[in-house]
C-alpha cells in the first residue's frame, strides 16, 4: 500500500524547505463560544499559524495549569462535546484544506466513544493528528493502530526527564511531530530555561526523526524567538487562551491577531 503523505508532514516539508519554523497555536474548542471557534481557527492561519492544536475540553485536565483549565470549564459550561469539536473541524475544512488540525485532549472522552469509532470520525472531519495527554506510548497502542489505519498522526509529548528508552518508545509510535515540554510543570508555567531546551533537542533528534516542537512556558515574542532558534516549531497555548479570557468579546479577534502576528514575526527573524 502506498503511504500517502499526511497533511502535517507535507506542511513541515514546505516550512523546512522555505527555511522557516512552524508556529502552532493552541486554544480550547468552544471557548469563548461555539460561534467564534471556526472563525478563530481561520484568523490564526491568517496571522501565520502553520498547524492548529484544538483543545477538546475535559472536566479533569490534570496536566494543564489554571488558564487552560478555566477555558476547559468555560467550554464545558457551553456543552461542547467531542462530536461538536469534530463538527468545528469539518466546518474549518470547508475553506481550508491545507492547514493541519491536531486535537489535543484527555483519554476519557475517547474511551467512551471507542478507538475505532473515534478514528473514523476524525478521518471524516479532516483531523490530521491526535495528542492525548494521558495516553503514553504504553497505554496508547490500540488507539495508535486505529488512527494509523486512517492516516492520522499520533503526536506524543517528550519531557526533560524522558529517558533514552522512552524516547525510543515514542519514536516507534509518533507521527507528524513530537512535542517537547520545555519545563517541569503544567501548561502556562513561566520558567522556561532556554539553555536546557537547546541542549536537549539534539538528543531528541538522535532518536526521533520527526520535527520537534517546543511548548509549555512560551509567553512572548522573545521566548518564541529563542525557542524557534533551536527547534522546528513553537507551540503556544496558555498565552493565547489568556488573551481570549482577558479580552472583551468584540476585541478577541483583533487582540489574537496582533498577538500571533507579533510572534510570527519574531519567529521569522530568528
Amino acid at each position: 500500500m502506498k503511504k500517502i503523505q499526511s497533511r502535517i508532514s507535507k506542511k513541515f516539508e514546505d516550512i523546512q524547505s522555505a527555511n522557516k519554523k512552524a508556529l502552532i497555536p493552541f486554544f480550547t474548542a468552544g471557548d469563548p463560544s461555539a460561534e467564534l471557534t471556526v472563525k478563530l481557527m481561520h484568523l490564526m492561519v491568517k496571522a501565520g499559524a502553520d498547524v492548529i492544536e484544538l483543545g477538546v475540553p475535559f472536566s479533569d485536565p490534570m496536566a494543564d495549569g489554571p488558564v487552560i483549565q478555566r477555558s476547559s470549564e468555560r467550554a464545558l459550561k457551553k456543552k461542547i462535546d467531542l462530536y461538536q469539536v469534530l463538527e468545528f473541524v469539518k466546518d474549518f475544512r470547508k475553506s481550508d484544506s491545507i492547514t493541519p488540525v491536531v486535537l489535543m485532549g484527555y483519554a476519557n472522552p475517547i474511551e467512551v466513544l471507542g478507538y475505532a469509532q473515534f478514528a473514523i470520525l476524525c478521518k471524516d472531519a479532516g483531523v490530521d493528528g491526535v495528542l492525548t495527554v494521558d495516553y503514553p506510548p504504553e497505554e496508547g497502542r490500540d488507539l495508535n493502530t486505529q488512527l494509523r489505519k486512517h492516516g492520522i498522526d499520533s503526536i506524543y509529548l517528550l519531557a526533560p526527564t524522558s529517558s533514552a528508552a522512552r524516547m525510543e518508545a515514542v519514536a516507534r509510535m509518533a507521527g507528524g511531530y513530537v512535542y517537547y515540554v520545555s519545563l517541569k510543570g503544567v501548561t502556562g508555567a513561566n520558567h522556561l530555561d532556554i539553555d536546557s531546551v537547546a541542549q536537549r533537542i539534539p538528543k531528541i533528534r538522535e532518536t526521533v526523526r520527526l520535527p520537534v516542537g517546543v511548548g509549555f512556558g512560551i509567553r512572548d515574542a522573545n521566548t518564541a524567538k529563542s525557542v524557534a532558534r533551536v527547534s522546528d516549531a513553537v507551540v503556544i497555548g496558555s498565552r493565547i487562551v489568556e488573551e481570549i479570557e482577558n479580552s472583551r468579546e468584540d476585541k478577541i479577534e483583533q487582540n489574537l491577531y496582533n498577538l500571533l502576528t507579533e510572534i510570527r514575526e519574531a519567529i521569522d527573524e530568528c
Partner: peptide
C-alpha cells in the same frame, strides 16, 4: 489500572 499520565510524570513514577 495501568499508567495513564502525561510524559512529564513518567520519570517520577518510574
Amino acid at each position: 489500572g495501568g499508567i495513564f499520565v502525561a510524559e512529564t510524570l513518567m520519570h517520577a513514577l518510574e
